[in-house]
Amino acid sequence: MVRTTQSLADLPEGSTGTIRDIDALSPTAQRLLDMGFVPGTPIKAIKRAPMGDPTTYEIRGYKVGLRRSESSLIDVEIKPDVK
């Protein structure tokens, strides 16, 4: 199976990925972890704002908007078999 890891910030609108890693050194990381952005969690990029940033994501049944500065802390993996 081909596995591709990329930054959450680059996850295309409408696609789902699985969180692989999070930059533990960033001060925001702890808050993201606490909100459920832990490795193995599926996350879907719902929509980018009209001006390109931020982006809404769906994770653990709720929606949250992240700026690129936050979403680029997270690495996701897109499995070809996940829609």
């Binding site: 930054s7 910030a9 930059d23 050194l25 960033s26 001060p27 925001t28 001006m51 390109g52 940033d53 700026r67 690129r68 500065s69 680029s72 802390l73 690495d75």
Partner: peptide
């Protein structure tokens, strides 16, 4: 920058920024 720019110039965590 407001309307088309996508630079992460306001990135507060630049030191650990993967991009």
């Amino acid at each position: 920058n407001t309307f088309i720019g996508r630079q992460c110039k306001s990135c507060a965590s630049c030191s650990s920024c993967p991009a």
